[in-house]
Nucleic acid binder design. Structure first.
Lengths: 194, 194
DNA sequence: CAAGTCACATACAGTCTGCATGTTTTATCC
DNA sequence: GGATAAAACATGCAGACTGTATGTGACTTG
């Protein structure tokens, strides 16, 4: 059981175990109802290890969210850069790709519900900006051809991003995915339409 | 100090004191960082009184939110039923009235950030549906003339509602209110435009 | 006015978080 | 390759918080 492992390997394995266990419990019970003893037990380490690698429970939660946000961004990136698409096609494809990526169980709760409350709306928005929102704004800018009719680019990016998030939440809550996918598509088309 | 008060009067005064104190602290520190001893002290009652009137901390929070959601709905109602407006005018006026109502300090944090995390996305959405969303859907239905081009009424209601909320959050976070007010207006106009 | 109910106040048990201090495993140095 | 340092954990503990159980005085009702 105790194969001689290098230090970085040991640490990485422990951190991954903690991230995996924490993610599962945060998704199942929510941040507040998940205790660090529960996380440590599920990860098969002690609380000492947790507090060695993460400043506190909140820091561990932030790390879980960063990993999750990166995964979402990668999945969207993958889909939009696969085939050669016009800016408008890329925007529409990216929008649906985002909904698909957010359909992975737990992501809406982590990123959209508990995230803002635990990290604060500010920090949570910054995390979103660093991954999803930036991509969306660039896609919008390209598709709009730099003439946002009636609104500024940052504003329309924020409002559209919010609509996407709500769609993801609705789908997770059991609404008909097709209904919200076509609604998102129609909304984007109305935005980019002249 | 001990004016002879009737029981319902006593209870009502205590509950209001708790709601006021809890609202202020939930807004300032957030739900998780607010303790029941702090609330009781600020309300000048004991924790016993708190747990006599509310099942638990969460139940008190829910009561704060219900009062807040009702206030928002009333302010919007007031603005849209003041003058005789066409359905389309009422929808646009109601949208801006909602932004104004949500600009009351603390409301975005209570209703949009902490609410979903503490009560759960489900219950929080139900609260929203009972007040804001229902009004919005009816306004949309009237303005659209029952031909939602490309999306269903429930879906477009949800997406627009999310956009409004994000606009309120952006304004609270320091963004230019005029920028987001015009963006919201432009968005609504594109939705109801044929 | 006696009996009962309501509105609290107080005391307590169990749990949790974060830190301080040990212990073991890996790396470094000579 | 043995000693020393440093990283990676493990353990113990203090303070705080939540919810409940139980006690007490103010009000209400027959």
């Amino acid at each position: 059981m105790q194969a001689r492992r290098t230090n970085p390997e040991r640490a990485e394995a422990t951190k991954t175990a903690l991230l995996d266990a924490a993610r599962a419990l945060f998704v199942r019970d929510g941040y507040a109802e998940t205790s660090t003893p529960m996380i440590a037990e599920a990860a098969k380490v002690t609380r000492g290890a947790l507090y060695h690698h993460y400043a506190d429970k909140r820091d561990l939660f932030r790390s879980v969210l960063e990993r999750e946000a990166r995964a979402v961004a990668e999945e969207v990136e993958m889909r939009t850069s696969a085939a050669p698409l016009t800016p408008r096609e890329a925007l529409l494809e990216g929008s649906l790709a985002y909904l698909d990526a957010m359909a992975v169980p737990g992501r809406t709760r982590l990123l959209l519900v508990d995230g803002p409350a635990v990290l604060g709306a500010q920090e949570s928005a910054a995390l979103d900006e660093a991954h999803a929102a930036r991509t969306l704004r660039e896609g919008l800018e390209a598709a709009l051809g730099r003439n946002p009719q009636g609104f500024t680019l940052p504003a329309v990016t924020a409002l559209l991003s919010a609509a996407f998030d709500r769609a993801a939440l609705a789908i997770e809550a059991g609404s008909d995915p097709a209904e919200f996918r076509s609604a998102v598509t129609a909304l984007v088309e109305r935005i980019v339409a002249e």
